[in-house]
Amino acid sequence: MIRGARANVPVAASAMAYGSVLGVLAAQKGLNWLDMMYMNSAVFAGAAQFVMVDMWSNHMPIFEMTLAVLVINLRYLLIGASLDPLFSGRGLLHKMGMMHLVADENWAVTMSEQRNGSATTWFLFGGGVFLYLAWSSGTLIGLLGGGFITRPEEYALDFAFTAVFTALAVGLWRGKSDILPWVVAGAAALLAHKFLPGKWYIVAGGLAGAVSAMLSPCETDEVEEVEDVPSY
């Protein structure tokens, strides 16, 4: 569990950076620290929280907000599914307890770690707890100290998310067998980003990539090159 927390230091730093951006936006929308912490603890999903803060108003658009969160977080269905091998042999209660603190970040770090064969559900969970602390402090710093950073995008804080996930994506590259799914995923994501509203592009790209891997010929099935996986 400690190992999982330690492995998540880089992603937690980035989560803190864009958490502070969210905090600044939330301050402008009039959220107090309790609203913020309630959302951090209950939802615990970066992109969805950004959209929720964006939709925040004196008359909460409850239905639209729920729907938006559903669409943005559809990818968690896939993320959850990809964790199945890690959870094999574990009971339902264990799964229920561990899954809440699964975010993009600790999931990605765990998938990298699993390439080395040393990931466990506690590794995932330790990362989640650490990430929760970093995310919460980032958002609160932004919310309460919003006056200091009035324009977070000037410091490229909004790019922290993209940068850290680019680095993580590189770590998930498995070699030649990934060329086809990644090209298909990228093309689908760009198309969906252009033509579909909201965050459909994540799910569209991910699914398209996975389907293309399913449909491709079997030759690369057994001999998967294990590329150097970055250590954290």
Partner: peptide
């Protein structure tokens, strides 16, 4: 086949997540 798709999923999903913001 299904397993192969699921194995390709994490990378494809992360790549889809970042590519539009990069572009």
């Amino acid at each position: 086949r299904f397993r192969r798709g699921m194995d390709a999923l994490p990378g494809a999903l992360l790549f889809s997540l970042v590519l539009p913001s990069i572009v």
